[in-house]
Design a protein around this nucleic acid. Structure first.
Lengths: 209, 209
DNA sequence: GTAATATTGTTATAAAAATAACAATTCCTC
DNA sequence: GAGGAATTGTTATTTTTATAACAATATTAC
Protein backbone atom coordinates (compact mmCIF):
# COMPACT_ATOMS: atom_id res chain seq x y z
CA UNK A 1 0.00 0.00 0.00
CA UNK A 2 1.10 3.51 -0.74
CA UNK A 3 2.38 5.42 2.25
CA UNK A 4 -0.34 7.21 4.15
CA UNK A 5 -0.38 10.86 5.23
CA UNK A 6 1.31 11.52 8.55
CA UNK A 7 -1.80 12.94 10.15
CA UNK A 8 -3.84 9.97 9.03
CA UNK A 9 -1.38 7.62 10.70
CA UNK A 10 -1.69 9.55 13.93
CA UNK A 11 -5.44 9.35 13.78
CA UNK A 12 -5.44 5.66 12.91
CA UNK A 13 -3.60 4.99 16.14
CA UNK A 14 -6.26 6.92 18.00
CA UNK A 15 -9.12 5.33 16.10
CA UNK A 16 -7.87 1.93 17.12
CA UNK A 17 -7.68 2.73 20.80
CA UNK A 18 -11.02 4.51 20.74
CA UNK A 19 -12.62 1.58 18.92
CA UNK A 20 -11.21 -0.86 21.46
CA UNK A 21 -12.66 1.21 24.28
CA UNK A 22 -15.96 1.58 22.45
CA UNK A 23 -16.24 -2.15 21.96
CA UNK A 24 -15.45 -2.85 25.62
CA UNK A 25 -17.93 -0.24 26.86
CA UNK A 26 -20.88 -0.71 24.55
CA UNK A 27 -20.41 -4.28 23.51
CA UNK A 28 -21.60 -3.07 20.14
CA UNK A 29 -19.92 -4.05 16.92
CA UNK A 30 -21.27 -1.12 14.90
CA UNK A 31 -20.13 2.46 14.90
CA UNK A 32 -21.08 5.41 12.70
CA UNK A 33 -18.49 7.81 11.38
CA UNK A 34 -20.10 10.62 13.35
CA UNK A 35 -19.94 8.60 16.56
CA UNK A 36 -16.25 7.90 16.18
CA UNK A 37 -15.70 11.52 15.21
CA UNK A 38 -17.51 12.80 18.29
CA UNK A 39 -15.41 10.60 20.55
CA UNK A 40 -12.29 12.15 19.08
CA UNK A 41 -13.46 15.75 18.71
CA UNK A 42 -13.04 15.69 14.96
CA UNK A 43 -15.43 15.71 12.00
CA UNK A 44 -17.20 12.73 10.51
CA UNK A 45 -15.82 13.60 7.08
CA UNK A 46 -12.32 13.32 8.41
CA UNK A 47 -13.06 9.88 9.75
CA UNK A 48 -14.57 8.70 6.50
CA UNK A 49 -11.74 10.12 4.48
CA UNK A 50 -9.15 8.36 6.60
CA UNK A 51 -11.08 5.13 6.30
CA UNK A 52 -11.23 5.63 2.55
CA UNK A 53 -7.43 6.01 2.55
CA UNK A 54 -6.95 2.65 4.19
CA UNK A 55 -9.31 1.02 1.73
CA UNK A 56 -11.85 -0.27 4.18
CA UNK A 57 -15.52 0.02 3.47
CA UNK A 58 -18.65 -0.84 5.33
CA UNK A 59 -22.00 -2.09 4.22
CA UNK A 60 -23.40 1.33 3.59
CA UNK A 61 -25.89 3.00 5.84
CA UNK A 62 -25.18 0.78 8.86
CA UNK A 63 -21.91 2.15 10.11
CA UNK A 64 -18.59 0.36 10.35
CA UNK A 65 -17.90 -3.05 11.83
CA UNK A 66 -15.85 -2.19 14.89
CA UNK A 67 -13.75 -5.33 15.02
CA UNK A 68 -13.11 -5.42 11.30
CA UNK A 69 -11.99 -1.81 11.39
CA UNK A 70 -9.65 -2.53 14.29
CA UNK A 71 -8.22 -5.40 12.26
CA UNK A 72 -7.68 -3.33 9.14
CA UNK A 73 -6.03 -0.52 11.08
CA UNK A 74 -3.79 -3.00 12.84
CA UNK A 75 -2.68 -4.47 9.55
CA UNK A 76 -1.50 -1.05 8.52
CA UNK A 77 0.11 0.35 11.62
CA UNK A 78 1.41 -2.86 13.15
CA UNK A 79 4.41 -4.69 11.84
CA UNK A 80 4.38 -8.36 11.02
CA UNK A 81 7.29 -9.13 13.31
CA UNK A 82 7.25 -7.42 16.71
CA UNK A 83 9.46 -4.35 17.08
CA UNK A 84 11.66 -3.99 20.14
CA UNK A 85 11.87 -0.65 21.89
CA UNK A 86 14.17 0.74 24.56
CA UNK A 87 13.85 3.69 26.89
CA UNK A 88 17.16 5.53 27.21
CA UNK A 89 17.08 7.49 30.44
CA UNK A 90 15.16 6.01 33.32
CA UNK A 91 14.21 9.12 35.23
CA UNK A 92 10.66 10.23 35.86
CA UNK A 93 9.83 10.56 32.19
CA UNK A 94 11.33 7.20 31.29
CA UNK A 95 9.38 5.55 34.06
CA UNK A 96 6.20 7.33 33.03
CA UNK A 97 6.57 5.97 29.52
CA UNK A 98 7.21 2.48 30.85
CA UNK A 99 3.97 2.69 32.78
CA UNK A 100 2.01 3.94 29.74
CA UNK A 101 3.27 0.94 27.88
CA UNK A 102 1.90 -1.67 30.19
CA UNK A 103 -0.98 -3.48 28.57
CA UNK A 104 -1.69 -5.02 25.25
CA UNK A 105 0.56 -3.77 22.52
CA UNK A 106 1.58 -7.06 21.00
CA UNK A 107 3.72 -5.68 18.21
CA UNK A 108 5.65 -3.06 20.13
CA UNK A 109 7.71 -4.54 22.93
CA UNK A 110 9.47 -2.36 25.43
CA UNK A 111 12.37 -4.64 26.26
CA UNK A 112 14.92 -2.56 28.15
CA UNK A 113 15.62 0.68 29.96
CA UNK A 114 18.98 2.38 30.43
CA UNK A 115 20.36 4.80 32.97
CA UNK A 116 23.65 6.03 34.34
CA UNK A 117 22.56 6.11 37.98
CA UNK A 118 23.81 2.98 39.83
CA UNK A 119 20.79 3.10 42.11
CA UNK A 120 18.47 2.57 39.14
CA UNK A 121 20.48 -0.13 37.44
CA UNK A 122 18.96 -3.51 38.09
CA UNK A 123 15.56 -2.05 38.95
CA UNK A 124 12.68 -3.80 37.29
CA UNK A 125 9.24 -2.28 36.75
CA UNK A 126 6.50 -4.07 34.81
CA UNK A 127 9.08 -6.60 33.61
CA UNK A 128 11.30 -3.90 32.14
CA UNK A 129 14.81 -4.13 33.49
CA UNK A 130 17.10 -1.13 33.79
CA UNK A 131 20.66 -1.59 32.51
CA UNK A 132 23.74 0.55 32.80
CA UNK A 133 24.17 3.03 30.00
CA UNK A 134 27.62 1.49 29.51
CA UNK A 135 25.94 -1.57 28.12
CA UNK A 136 23.79 0.37 25.65
CA UNK A 137 25.59 -0.80 22.50
CA UNK A 138 25.82 -4.37 23.65
CA UNK A 139 22.19 -4.74 24.63
CA UNK A 140 20.74 -2.81 21.69
CA UNK A 141 22.35 -5.37 19.44
CA UNK A 142 21.70 -8.40 21.63
CA UNK A 143 18.02 -7.63 22.00
CA UNK A 144 17.56 -6.41 18.42
CA UNK A 145 16.20 -3.05 19.46
CA UNK A 146 14.94 -0.94 16.56
CA UNK A 147 13.41 2.09 18.23
CA UNK A 148 14.76 4.19 21.11
CA UNK A 149 12.87 6.63 23.27
CA UNK A 150 15.28 9.27 24.45
CA UNK A 151 14.54 10.76 27.87
CA UNK A 152 17.99 11.55 29.22
CA UNK A 153 18.98 14.97 30.63
CA UNK A 154 19.90 17.66 28.14
CA UNK A 155 23.66 17.37 28.56
CA UNK A 156 23.68 13.66 27.73
CA UNK A 157 21.35 13.72 24.73
CA UNK A 158 23.94 14.26 22.01
CA UNK A 159 26.23 11.45 23.11
CA UNK A 160 23.40 9.00 23.54
CA UNK A 161 22.08 9.80 20.08
CA UNK A 162 25.54 9.18 18.67
CA UNK A 163 25.68 5.72 20.17
CA UNK A 164 22.16 4.95 18.98
CA UNK A 165 23.08 5.93 15.45
CA UNK A 166 26.29 3.89 15.51
CA UNK A 167 24.40 0.86 16.68
CA UNK A 168 22.05 1.08 13.73
CA UNK A 169 18.87 2.23 15.38
CA UNK A 170 15.99 2.77 12.93
CA UNK A 171 13.86 5.28 14.78
CA UNK A 172 14.25 7.73 17.66
CA UNK A 173 11.52 9.39 19.67
CA UNK A 174 13.27 12.36 21.24
CA UNK A 175 11.81 13.92 24.39
CA UNK A 176 14.86 15.95 25.24
CA UNK A 177 14.97 19.62 24.33
CA UNK A 178 18.09 19.05 22.26
CA UNK A 179 17.70 19.14 18.49
CA UNK A 180 19.43 16.02 17.24
CA UNK A 181 21.37 15.81 14.01
CA UNK A 182 21.19 12.28 12.72
CA UNK A 183 21.32 10.64 9.29
CA UNK A 184 18.12 11.08 7.30
CA UNK A 185 17.48 7.35 6.97
CA UNK A 186 16.74 7.21 10.69
CA UNK A 187 13.20 8.31 11.46
CA UNK A 188 13.26 11.03 14.07
CA UNK A 189 10.23 12.26 15.95
CA UNK A 190 10.75 15.08 18.41
CA UNK A 191 8.45 16.31 21.10
CA UNK A 192 9.05 19.27 23.32
CA UNK A 193 6.89 19.76 26.39
CA UNK A 194 7.97 23.33 26.99
CA UNK A 195 7.05 24.31 23.45
CA UNK A 196 3.62 22.73 23.89
CA UNK A 197 3.05 24.66 27.05
CA UNK A 198 4.21 27.93 25.54
CA UNK A 199 1.85 27.28 22.66
CA UNK A 200 -1.06 26.81 25.05
CA UNK A 201 -0.10 30.02 26.82
CA UNK A 202 -0.01 31.91 23.52
CA UNK A 203 -3.41 30.72 22.36
CA UNK A 204 -4.96 31.25 25.76
CA UNK A 205 -3.77 34.82 25.58
CA UNK A 206 -4.80 35.36 21.95
CA UNK A 207 -8.00 33.36 21.82
CA UNK A 208 -10.28 36.22 20.74
CA UNK A 209 -8.69 36.94 17.38
CA UNK B 1 -0.77 41.86 15.95
CA UNK B 2 -2.70 39.40 13.87
CA UNK B 3 -2.65 35.87 15.23
CA UNK B 4 0.26 33.83 13.95
CA UNK B 5 0.16 30.38 12.38
CA UNK B 6 0.25 27.54 14.87
CA UNK B 7 3.42 26.06 13.46
CA UNK B 8 5.16 29.40 13.56
CA UNK B 9 4.33 29.75 17.25
CA UNK B 10 5.82 26.33 17.91
CA UNK B 11 8.99 27.28 16.09
CA UNK B 12 9.24 30.65 17.82
CA UNK B 13 9.39 28.84 21.13
CA UNK B 14 12.22 26.72 19.78
CA UNK B 15 13.99 29.64 18.16
CA UNK B 16 14.07 31.40 21.48
CA UNK B 17 15.57 28.50 23.36
CA UNK B 18 18.06 27.80 20.60
CA UNK B 19 19.07 31.45 20.48
CA UNK B 20 19.59 31.52 24.23
CA UNK B 21 21.83 28.48 24.00
CA UNK B 22 23.64 29.91 21.01
CA UNK B 23 24.35 33.14 22.85
CA UNK B 24 25.60 31.32 25.91
CA UNK B 25 27.84 28.99 23.87
CA UNK B 26 29.27 31.35 21.29
CA UNK B 27 29.01 34.63 23.05
CA UNK B 28 28.15 35.98 19.64
CA UNK B 29 25.31 38.38 19.08
CA UNK B 30 24.93 37.61 15.39
CA UNK B 31 23.30 34.64 13.77
CA UNK B 32 22.47 33.88 10.14
CA UNK B 33 19.19 32.35 9.13
CA UNK B 34 20.99 29.28 7.83
CA UNK B 35 22.80 28.85 11.15
CA UNK B 36 19.61 28.93 13.15
CA UNK B 37 18.01 26.64 10.60
CA UNK B 38 20.83 24.12 10.84
CA UNK B 39 20.56 24.03 14.62
CA UNK B 40 16.88 23.16 14.30
CA UNK B 41 17.03 20.83 11.29
CA UNK B 42 14.85 23.09 9.22
CA UNK B 43 15.44 25.31 6.20
CA UNK B 44 16.74 28.85 6.23
CA UNK B 45 13.73 30.00 4.24
CA UNK B 46 11.44 28.76 6.95
CA UNK B 47 13.37 30.74 9.53
CA UNK B 48 13.27 33.92 7.47
CA UNK B 49 9.61 33.54 6.76
CA UNK B 50 8.78 33.12 10.44
CA UNK B 51 10.87 36.15 11.26
CA UNK B 52 9.06 38.07 8.56
CA UNK B 53 5.74 37.07 10.20
CA UNK B 54 6.77 38.59 13.49
CA UNK B 55 7.87 41.79 11.79
CA UNK B 56 11.48 41.75 12.86
CA UNK B 57 14.21 42.63 10.44
CA UNK B 58 17.95 42.75 10.56
CA UNK B 59 20.45 44.98 8.94
CA UNK B 60 20.73 42.98 5.79
CA UNK B 61 23.66 40.78 4.95
CA UNK B 62 24.93 40.55 8.55
CA UNK B 63 22.50 38.11 10.11
CA UNK B 64 20.13 38.76 12.98
CA UNK B 65 20.92 40.33 16.31
CA UNK B 66 20.52 37.42 18.70
CA UNK B 67 19.38 39.36 21.74
CA UNK B 68 17.02 41.59 19.80
CA UNK B 69 15.45 38.56 18.21
CA UNK B 70 15.02 36.90 21.60
CA UNK B 71 13.34 40.08 22.81
CA UNK B 72 10.96 40.29 19.86
CA UNK B 73 9.99 36.63 20.15
CA UNK B 74 9.43 37.05 23.88
CA UNK B 75 7.13 39.98 23.29
CA UNK B 76 4.98 37.76 21.14
CA UNK B 77 4.88 34.48 23.00
CA UNK B 78 5.13 35.76 26.55
CA UNK B 79 2.27 37.41 28.35
CA UNK B 80 2.58 40.75 30.07
CA UNK B 81 1.42 39.39 33.40
CA UNK B 82 2.84 36.02 34.43
CA UNK B 83 0.58 33.00 33.89
CA UNK B 84 0.17 30.45 36.66
CA UNK B 85 0.24 26.76 35.80
CA UNK B 86 -0.63 23.62 37.75
CA UNK B 87 0.23 19.98 37.22
CA UNK B 88 -2.75 17.77 37.95
CA UNK B 89 -1.45 14.29 38.71
CA UNK B 90 1.89 14.05 40.44
CA UNK B 91 3.07 10.67 39.25
CA UNK B 92 6.19 10.09 37.19
CA UNK B 93 5.00 12.23 34.31
CA UNK B 94 3.90 15.08 36.56
CA UNK B 95 7.26 15.02 38.30
CA UNK B 96 9.10 14.89 34.98
CA UNK B 97 7.29 18.02 33.83
CA UNK B 98 8.06 19.75 37.09
CA UNK B 99 11.73 19.03 36.54
CA UNK B 100 11.63 20.28 32.94
CA UNK B 101 10.22 23.52 34.25
CA UNK B 102 13.03 24.37 36.55
CA UNK B 103 14.99 27.31 35.27
CA UNK B 104 14.21 30.66 33.82
CA UNK B 105 10.73 30.92 32.48
CA UNK B 106 9.70 34.19 34.05
CA UNK B 107 6.24 34.43 32.54
CA UNK B 108 5.07 30.86 33.09
CA UNK B 109 5.01 29.91 36.75
CA UNK B 110 4.37 26.37 37.83
CA UNK B 111 2.75 27.09 41.16
CA UNK B 112 1.15 23.83 42.33
CA UNK B 113 0.85 20.11 41.83
CA UNK B 114 -2.08 17.89 42.75
CA UNK B 115 -2.44 14.22 43.54
CA UNK B 116 -4.79 11.83 45.27
CA UNK B 117 -2.06 9.75 46.94
CA UNK B 118 -1.62 10.80 50.61
CA UNK B 119 2.06 9.88 50.42
CA UNK B 120 2.65 12.52 47.76
CA UNK B 121 0.62 15.29 49.36
CA UNK B 122 2.88 17.79 51.05
CA UNK B 123 5.91 16.75 49.01
CA UNK B 124 7.84 19.65 47.61
CA UNK B 125 10.20 19.47 44.63
CA UNK B 126 11.88 22.52 43.18
CA UNK B 127 9.60 24.74 45.26
CA UNK B 128 6.47 23.14 43.81
CA UNK B 129 4.20 21.82 46.53
CA UNK B 130 1.85 18.91 46.04
CA UNK B 131 -1.72 19.38 47.28
CA UNK B 132 -4.59 16.96 47.70
CA UNK B 133 -6.81 16.69 44.68
CA UNK B 134 -9.69 17.52 47.04
CA UNK B 135 -8.36 21.04 47.23
CA UNK B 136 -8.16 21.46 43.44
CA UNK B 137 -11.02 23.95 43.11
CA UNK B 138 -9.97 25.94 46.11
CA UNK B 139 -6.34 26.32 45.13
CA UNK B 140 -6.95 26.91 41.43
CA UNK B 141 -8.97 29.93 42.40
CA UNK B 142 -6.75 31.04 45.26
CA UNK B 143 -3.60 30.92 43.18
CA UNK B 144 -5.22 32.26 40.01
CA UNK B 145 -4.18 29.27 37.93
CA UNK B 146 -4.95 29.67 34.22
CA UNK B 147 -3.41 26.59 32.65
CA UNK B 148 -3.51 22.97 33.81
CA UNK B 149 -1.29 20.13 32.70
CA UNK B 150 -3.24 16.92 33.03
CA UNK B 151 -1.20 13.83 33.86
CA UNK B 152 -3.61 11.75 35.93
CA UNK B 153 -4.37 8.08 35.21
CA UNK B 154 -6.93 7.35 32.51
CA UNK B 155 -9.82 6.61 34.81
CA UNK B 156 -9.55 9.97 36.57
CA UNK B 157 -9.09 12.19 33.53
CA UNK B 158 -12.73 12.96 32.81
CA UNK B 159 -13.59 14.01 36.35
CA UNK B 160 -10.51 16.17 36.68
CA UNK B 161 -11.28 17.91 33.41
CA UNK B 162 -14.79 18.61 34.65
CA UNK B 163 -13.49 20.32 37.75
CA UNK B 164 -10.97 22.30 35.73
CA UNK B 165 -13.70 23.53 33.41
CA UNK B 166 -15.99 24.46 36.30
CA UNK B 167 -13.23 26.43 37.93
CA UNK B 168 -12.79 28.50 34.79
CA UNK B 169 -9.47 27.21 33.53
CA UNK B 170 -8.37 28.84 30.27
CA UNK B 171 -6.12 26.17 28.81
CA UNK B 172 -5.46 22.45 29.28
CA UNK B 173 -2.46 20.46 28.14
CA UNK B 174 -3.72 16.89 28.18
CA UNK B 175 -1.21 14.04 28.43
CA UNK B 176 -3.77 11.37 29.25
CA UNK B 177 -5.00 9.09 26.50
CA UNK B 178 -8.58 10.20 27.12
CA UNK B 179 -10.15 12.51 24.56
CA UNK B 180 -11.62 15.34 26.54
CA UNK B 181 -14.83 17.12 25.64
CA UNK B 182 -14.66 20.65 26.92
CA UNK B 183 -16.18 23.98 25.86
CA UNK B 184 -14.54 25.48 22.78
CA UNK B 185 -13.45 28.66 24.52
CA UNK B 186 -10.94 26.64 26.53
CA UNK B 187 -7.77 25.99 24.58
CA UNK B 188 -7.03 22.28 24.55
CA UNK B 189 -3.76 20.76 23.45
CA UNK B 190 -3.52 16.98 23.51
CA UNK B 191 -0.46 14.82 23.26
CA UNK B 192 -0.43 11.08 23.14
CA UNK B 193 2.84 9.24 23.65
CA UNK B 194 1.56 5.93 22.39
CA UNK B 195 0.39 7.50 19.16
CA UNK B 196 3.81 9.10 18.69
CA UNK B 197 5.49 5.78 19.18
CA UNK B 198 3.15 3.97 16.82
CA UNK B 199 3.85 6.66 14.28
CA UNK B 200 7.60 6.12 14.60
CA UNK B 201 7.05 2.39 14.19
CA UNK B 202 4.99 2.93 11.05
CA UNK B 203 7.50 5.21 9.39
CA UNK B 204 10.42 3.01 10.38
CA UNK B 205 8.64 0.16 8.67
CA UNK B 206 7.60 2.15 5.60
CA UNK B 207 10.62 4.35 5.16
CA UNK B 208 11.46 3.26 1.61
CA UNK B 209 8.32 4.46 -0.08
C1' DG C 1 35.00 52.25 -7.22
C1' DT C 2 33.31 47.99 -9.61
C1' DA C 3 32.19 43.31 -9.79
C1' DA C 4 31.25 39.27 -7.42
C1' DT C 5 29.15 37.24 -3.48
C1' DA C 6 26.29 36.39 0.42
C1' DT C 7 22.34 37.33 2.79
C1' DT C 8 17.78 39.03 3.68
C1' DG C 9 12.80 39.94 2.72
C1' DT C 10 9.01 38.90 -0.03
C1' DT C 11 6.19 37.10 -3.60
C1' DA C 12 4.95 32.98 -6.11
C1' DT C 13 4.30 28.15 -6.25
C1' DA C 14 3.69 23.58 -4.51
C1' DA C 15 2.40 20.21 -1.13
C1' DA C 16 -0.26 18.65 2.68
C1' DA C 17 -4.30 18.70 5.25
C1' DA C 18 -8.96 19.79 6.25
C1' DT C 19 -13.51 20.85 4.86
C1' DA C 20 -17.38 21.02 1.84
C1' DA C 21 -20.37 19.24 -1.58
C1' DC C 22 -22.82 15.75 -3.32
C1' DA C 23 -23.92 11.25 -5.70
C1' DA C 24 -24.87 6.54 -4.41
C1' DT C 25 -26.74 3.35 -1.51
C1' DT C 26 -29.43 1.35 1.95
C1' DC C 27 -32.92 1.46 5.22
C1' DC C 28 -37.31 2.83 7.00
C1' DT C 29 -42.11 4.40 6.73
C1' DC C 30 -46.13 4.42 4.88
C1' DG D 1 -42.95 -0.78 -3.58
C1' DA D 2 -42.48 4.53 -3.67
C1' DG D 3 -40.68 8.29 -1.26
C1' DG D 4 -37.98 10.19 2.27
C1' DA D 5 -34.09 9.98 5.42
C1' DA D 6 -29.58 8.69 6.90
C1' DT D 7 -25.16 7.31 5.94
C1' DT D 8 -21.19 6.25 3.25
C1' DG D 9 -17.61 7.06 -0.38
C1' DT D 10 -15.47 10.22 -3.33
C1' DT D 11 -14.47 14.34 -5.82
C1' DA D 12 -13.86 19.34 -5.48
C1' DT D 13 -12.53 23.26 -2.92
C1' DT D 14 -10.35 25.77 0.60
C1' DT D 15 -7.03 26.47 4.02
C1' DT D 16 -2.69 25.83 6.00
C1' DT D 17 2.03 24.98 5.61
C1' DA D 18 6.32 24.53 3.34
C1' DT D 19 9.32 25.35 -0.45
C1' DA D 20 11.14 27.78 -4.31
C1' DA D 21 12.38 31.81 -6.82
C1' DC D 22 14.25 36.03 -6.97
C1' DA D 23 14.86 41.15 -6.27
C1' DA D 24 17.13 44.19 -3.03
C1' DT D 25 20.88 45.22 -0.28
C1' DA D 26 25.06 45.07 1.91
C1' DT D 27 29.82 43.33 2.11
C1' DT D 28 34.11 41.88 0.33
C1' DA D 29 37.85 41.39 -3.02
C1' DC D 30 40.28 43.32 -6.29
Amino acid sequence: MKILPEKTIERLSQYRRTLNNFYADHNSNRIFSHELAALLNITAVQVRRDIMFIGYSSSQRKGYNVQELIQVISQIIDTHEPINVAVVGYGNLGKAITTYFVGNRPKLNLVAAFDIDPKKIGQETHNIKCYSIDRLREILVAKDITIAILTVPTHAAKDMAKILVQTGIKGILNYTTVNLHIPPEIYLEEYDMITSLEKVAYFVKNKNQ
